[in-house]
Amino acid sequence: MEVLRIVITGAVGAGKTTLIRTISEIQVVDTDRQATDETALLKPTTTVAFDFGRLTFAPNQALHLYGTPGQARFDFIWDILIQKAHAYIFLVDAHRPQDFRSGRRILSFMNQRAKIPMLIGLTHMDCPGAWDLDDIALALGLFDEATRPAMVPINPTQPSSVSQALMRLVQELMKAPVLN
């Protein structure tokens, strides 16, 4: 069995845990705990270590999906997970511009540590006030359309949307010159 390790990252509430729960074929190992910081205003629980799920997509190929925490105090987990990843998806909640800055910090953290295929997934595009793709790119500091990573809308609550994005990422991975 060939295993591709995919990290799902992004700021608090972007939908990392939800995405993995939606698509995993095994019961997800989550480490959500009651939130007592400002996350509590957004949702009751937050990931404190990682989520783990699995998806078999060919007879001998499986994705291992690891979801990171969102808060910067857990950056040691970001580091552990990204070191072993083959590719990653960075999720941005399109309707919470106040979180773009912390998202940008995660993106640059990952960028510095891993030169691996990645996608940017825009979540909450169905919510009122969602920014559109080009504006989010600018907010993330991705000014050059030609060189910026692929950006796709993803709804983490919908299996078809999640699997589409994952297959897109796998394609990017197959195109990439070396598998690490």
Binding site: T31, A49, F74, I77
Partner: peptide, 11 residues
């Protein structure tokens, strides 16, 4: 940092 690590480790 140690507070975050403690929570992660226990979980």
């Amino acid at each position: 940092r140690i507070a975050a690590m403690t929570a992660a480790m226990l979980s």
